[in-house]
Design a protein around this nucleic acid. Structure first.
Length: 627
DNA sequence: AGGCTCTGTG
């Protein structure tokens, strides 16, 4: 809004000349718009407002008032005025009204929209943007039926709806529309399309759209990275960052790229890469951005560098609730349960009010620190003191807390008493604990629940296999394998990644692709021999092998972390600590293997699996075999 | 008028 229009606006709202003088002596840029609104919206002024006396230019000021109005009461007054002065048919006024999200909250948008005789494409767009997914999609169909012009903006709004609906079919419809209407050169639209395919798990389609873009701007590159992260191709996300260096188009990684790549580094435990990004952040001057700092905290704490995470946190002049959340979760996953709870208290003392995500971190801290009573207490406090309704994440933490502590029955009861339907992940949490505590009766029952939910995944059966094999129940192992084969259940390979000298090495179970594979396997044999001397017993795994030599992929699942460790011993000087990231849970055997190895080879070994860190040092595990 | 984007169960 220009200074002139502010003056005009004040005039039209009946301000006296004193106010005008007062204003004119001030630089208009400094004049707060909200102040202007508070003056303009007082009821007396509203009544004095006579729109028929105004020229079109003054109507324009009215447009922006509607657009920027941020109070429901004021919007209500405006609405009354609009009706009184029959201004609702004014296309721009109604459009602006539709565009205001408060209007939608108040259910005004749809009322106004139905009163418009022949909505313009713009009005349709505003309405689609504000509507619920299914209503919006119906409006789009109506536009098509009535032959209303569909532009790139319509397409992008409808794509957003499809993302919310997870509707690939709807998205395909829009895609063909885009091609027919020749909107391919619109980058904003194409990134929307990438986002849709990404959300539907269609990585190949995302790449295709990206490849076909004429001009690839940074946002398009970012959408590609985001797709790779969201679809488990985290390593590819990092290589995209490298590809973005020295592009002929001159496009460079921006702050959003950094946010995304930091997330990828955290997933992969790729500390070196993360530090490289941190340097880049300094170079580009992003280091003071709050989102960047929050992501750095998360990246460092997930890369086993809690001190560096705290280093970032400590010097932040402005910490928001997200920063505290990152720090609390960082402490929690690194096994500092008590410290995480202290951080929570400090946050309260600083006057920051916790949100639902904070409590996820707090409950995680209790679960990882085996603080059962505290966890139950916080779960209660969350509801009673902070009026936060527990969500599925909170329930998940609680099930994990009880189940890992061995209170399997209590965990089961807890699930049955939940206010919301348990999702498959809740059952998997319990299943994971059944494996730890070798309760295969309950394990089988949980699998049944997963079958009921039609949500059983290969990983679930692998967990159950694990339970049977650790109990030495080979008959059940065979039976379950046959079942899996009949049903065509394919296991996702477990993989371990290790970062050395800035280079990321990934090992999968049946991996023979590494250039040093011969030396690695040889080294692994040697290590096995050494460990056996001091009593490491790998019988469980080897027997699993013998039971069904033809079906190696499942039993080999347990070995990707061993390959990574052997490689690290081979490639680093004695005494260097070894950090491995595993995409699933570490198995019993590998846990043992790492524990014994840390003593025999005098190496600190840190394995971060999908659920937590495992620190091994001097033949001991910091978690005391509590997983 | 619109795109990618911070913390979080397992």
């Amino acid at each position: 809004m220009t200074a002139i229009s502010q003056i005009r606006l004040l005039r039209c709202w009946g301000m006296n000349s004193n106010h005008q003088n007062h204003l004119s002596t001030h630089p208009f840029l400094k004049f707060s718009l909200s102040h202007l609104h508070s003056l303009a919206y007082t009821p007396e002024h509203t009544i004095q407002y006579q729109p028929q006396h105004h020229k079109t230019s003054e109507n324009k000021d009215f447009y922006s008032l509607i657009k920027t109005c941020s109070s429901k009461t004021h919007l209500l007054q405006i609405h009354t005025q609009l009706i009184k002065n029959s201004l609702l048919q004014n296309p721009i006024i109604s459009l602006n009204f539709l565009s205001n999200s408060l209007a939608h909250d108040l259910n005004y948008s749809s009322k106004i929209f139905t009163q418009i005789e022949n909505p313009s494409p713009f009005q349709y767009n505003a309405m689609i943007k504000a509507s619920s997914p299914s209503n919006g999609f119906n409006l789009f169909l109506e536009m098509q039926r009535k032959g209303v012009k569909i532009d790139a903006l319509t397409a992008s709004f409808v794509l957003k709806l499809c993302i919310k609906l997870k509707s690939l079919m709807g998205g395909l419809q829009i895609h063909s529309r885009i091609l027919r209407n020749g909107f391919q050169s619109d980058n904003r639209l194409m990134t929307c399309l990438m986002d849709l395919y990404s959300n539907c798990g269609k990585c190949d389609e995302v790449c295709k759209v990206f490849d076909e873009m004429h001009v690839r701007d940074t946002v398009a590159w970012n959408a590609l990275i985001s797709c790779y992260i969201g679809n488990g191709r985290t390593r590819d996300a990092l290589s995209v960052f490298d590809s973005m260096q020295g592009l002929p188009s001159g496009e460079e990684p921006d702050d959003v790229t950094c946010l995304l790549v930091l997330q990828a580094c955290g997933n992969l435990n790729a500390l070196d890469f993360g530090e490289k990004i941190h340097e880049y952040i300094y170079e580009k001057g992003y280091a003071n951005a709050l989102k960047i700092q929050n992501s750095l905290i998360s990246m460092y704490s997930r890369c086993d560098s809690l001190e560096k995470a705290y280093g970032v946190f400590k010097v932040m002049p402005n910490k928001n609730v997200v920063s505290w959340g990152a720090m609390i979760s960082g402490l929690a996953i690194n096994g500092y349960g008590r410290e995480a709870l202290e951080a929570f208290n400090e946050m309260l003392n600083m006057g920051v009010s916790p949100d639902d995500k904070i409590f996820t971190g707090v409950l995680t801290a209790c679960s990882h620190g085996r603080l059962v009573d505290e966890g139950l207490m916080f779960f209660k406090r969350m509801r009673e003191e902070f009026q936060i309704v527990p969500n599925i994440h909170h329930y998940g933490c609680m099930v994990d807390l009880l189940a890992r502590a061995g209170l399997l029955d209590k965990a089961y009861e807890f699930i049955m008493s939940m206010d919301i339907e348990p999702d498959p992940e809740i059952w998997r949490t319990l299943l994971g604990a059944c494996r730890i505590h070798r309760d295969f009766d309950l394990g089988e029952h949980v699998i049944e629940k997963l079958v009921e939910l039609k949500a059983q995944q290969a990983g679930d059966y692998v967990l159950l296999l694990n339970i049977y094999s650790s109990l030495g129940n080979w008959e059940k192992v065979m039976e379950l394998r046959r079942f899996m084969k009949e049903r065509g259940i394919v296991t996702t390979p477990g993989s371990s990644t290790i970062s050395l000298k800035g280079e990321l090495h990934e090992f999968v179970a049946d991996d023979v692709s590494h250039p040093q594979k011969c030396e690695i396997y040889e080294k692994l044999g040697e290590i096995n021999h050494q460990l056996k001397i001091v009593g490491y017993d790998a019988e469980v795994t080897s027997e699993l092998h013998n039971q069904d030599a033809a079906d190696k992929e499942i039993s080999l699942l347990y070995h990707s972390e061993k390959l990574a460790i052997a490689f690290a011993i081979l490639s680093t000087p004695p005494g260097t600590s070894i950090r491995v990231a595993k995409n699933f849970r570490i198995c019993v055997d590998c846990h043992n293997f790492a524990k014994v190895l840390s003593g025999v080879y005098d190496r600190v070994v840190v394995i971060r699996d999908r659920t937590r860190f495992h620190h091994f040092c001097g033949g001991q595990c910091s978690c005391n075999d509590y997983w």
